[in-house]
């Protein structure tokens, strides 16, 4: 029951954050909406009992990639930063209340329609999503691909530095 309510809250927030990313004029606001979306998806991974992927999602996506995006936006000086001195609590609280209402309505409609086939078996899912069982597969069956990903990341790092470097004229 808790998981289903959590699902609807997170799904509503994720969809609204994606819409906010699409519709906002300012690139910085857009990036912040996307970060909210990534956090919501990490919460959805937790509702699926995939805790390792949820942690990696927050670390890699929300932590690394989005910082890179914000850094480039500020480097290119595309947008004025949002004014941090006045945090609009009214808008934040109304956003959260709206998300709660949307989640509640979706939950009630889904409950009324009752369109639910096979439920996920939770014990099996918790066993599959844990870091240790993933590591067993990752370092045995997929060890080769893991190494290749390392080389890919090295190549991407060097390539990014070379491309972004100022050319001597």
């Amino acid at each position: 029951m808790t998981v289903s309510i959590l699902f609807f809250v997170l799904a509503a927030a994720a969809l609204t954050a994606a819409l906010g990313m699409l519709l906002s004029r300012n690139p910085v606001t857009s990036a912040l909406w996307l970060i909210l979306n990534l956090f919501c998806v990490a919460g959805l991974y937790l509702t699926l009992n995939a805790e390792f992927i949820a942690v990696i999602q927050v670390l890699v996506y929300a932590g690394a990639i989005m910082v890179l995006f914000l850094f480039v936006i500020m480097l290119l000086n595309l947008a004025s930063l949002p004014d941090l001195k006045r945090i609009e609590w009214k808008r934040i609280i109304s956003f959260m209340l709206g998300m709660g209402l949307l989640a509640m309505l979706t939950f009630i409609i889904a409950h009324a329609l009752d369109v639910m086939p096979d439920p996920l078996s939770l014990d099996l899912a918790a066993e599959t999503g844990s870091a240790s069982s993933l590591a067993k597969v990752l370092f045995t069956q997929y060890a080769m691909i893991f190494e290749v990903i390392g080389i890919l990341l090295l190549a991407a790092t060097i390539g990014a530095v070379v491309i972004a470097k100022r050319k001597p004229v």
Partner: peptide
């Protein structure tokens, strides 16, 4: 991992 590499190279191209 591929998304991280893609974002790094893409943003370098944008710069």
């Amino acid at each position: 991992s591929v998304a991280a590499a893609e974002a790094a190279v893409g943003l370098a191209l944008i710069i």
